[in-house]
Computed example of a mutant assay.
Amino acid sequence: MNHRLGRHIVLIGMMGAGKTAIGSEIARRYGVNFTDSDAEIEAAAAMSISEIFERDGEEFFRRRETQILTRILAAPPSIVSTGGGAWMQPRNRDLIAEAGLSVWLNCDLETLWHRVRQRSTRPLLKTADPKGTLARLIDERYPVYQLADLNFPSRGGDSVEATATRLIEEIRAAYPDLLELK
């Protein structure tokens, strides 16, 4: 029995929310492609996101992000992970709404901080007070993230597998026609 998605499932949320890990696990279980939009941007630019931010700035990065999302969402339905700021752009929200189900992986500050504090690959956290910056980003972004089709509260201690199972169950309950069996 093969699973087929009726449309894209697009994971949104803050850096460290688990979009890539959970998205990869769900894609594996559904037997569909997984795409991380940040990884696609890096591949297209042949440089890291930090390097893009340093060389070309955030505005350039956001334009490239929209181009990449447009390409990803034109492909057959898959699981998509977006960068933390992607959902903040109205054009990206429109693109995602046209092609898929938006799922906010909603994490608290302490869980996010625990996951990202050791990583130097987060350009927006390269500040004198990275935890304070993360808290400010949460304040700015969470009201917009609430526009997502599904708000999925994270449980910091759960495994990727347990979280993926819980998310699949919530998607099936709220959107029973999204996952088709063939």
Rank of each mutant, 00 (worst) to 15 (best):
A27Q: 14
R28V: 00
R28L: 11
R28G: 11
R29P: 06
R29I: 03
G31L: 02
G31S: 13
V32H: 13
N33E: 11
F34Q: 06
D36R: 10
D36A: 11
D36E: 08
A39H: 15
A39S: 11
E40G: 08
I41M: 04
E42S: 05
A43Q: 13
A44N: 12
A46Y: 05
A46F: 02
M47I: 01
S48M: 00
S48C: 06
I49P: 02
I49D: 01
S50G: 15
S50P: 15
E51W: 02
F53R: 14
E54M: 05
E54V: 09
E58N: 12
E59S: 09
F60A: 14
F60W: 13
R63W: 07
R64L: 10
Q67H: 08
Q67I: 00
I68E: 05
L69R: 08
R71N: 08
I72G: 02
A74C: 08
A75K: 14
A75E: 15
P76T: 09
P77T: 08
P77Y: 10
S78V: 00
S78G: 10
S78E: 02
V80M: 10
T82W: 06
G83R: 06
G83Q: 06
G85S: 03
A86P: 07
M88P: 01
M88A: 04
M88T: 02
P90T: 07
N92K: 10
N92Y: 06
N92Q: 09
A97H: 12
E98H: 09
S102I: 00
S102A: 09
L105D: 10
N106S: 14
D108H: 11
E110D: 15
E110C: 00
E110M: 04
T111S: 10
W113T: 00
H114Q: 13
H114I: 01
H114M: 12
R117L: 01
R117Y: 03
R117V: 02
Q118Y: 05
R119V: 01
R119N: 14
S120M: 03
S120N: 15
S120E: 12
T121N: 15
R122W: 12
P123R: 06
L124P: 02
K126S: 13
A128K: 11
A128Y: 00
A128T: 13
A128H: 08
P130E: 02
K131W: 12
G132T: 07
G132A: 07
G132Y: 15
T133C: 09
L134P: 09
L134Y: 14
I138N: 02
I138Y: 05
E140I: 01
E140D: 15
R141I: 07
P143F: 00
V144S: 03
V144N: 05
V144Y: 02
Y145A: 13
Q146V: 03
Q146E: 13
L147R: 15
A148N: 11
D149R: 11
L150G: 14
N151D: 15
N151M: 09
F152C: 03
F152N: 08
P153Q: 12
P153I: 12
S154D: 06
G157W: 06
G157Y: 09
S159L: 04
A162G: 00
A162T: 10
T163C: 13
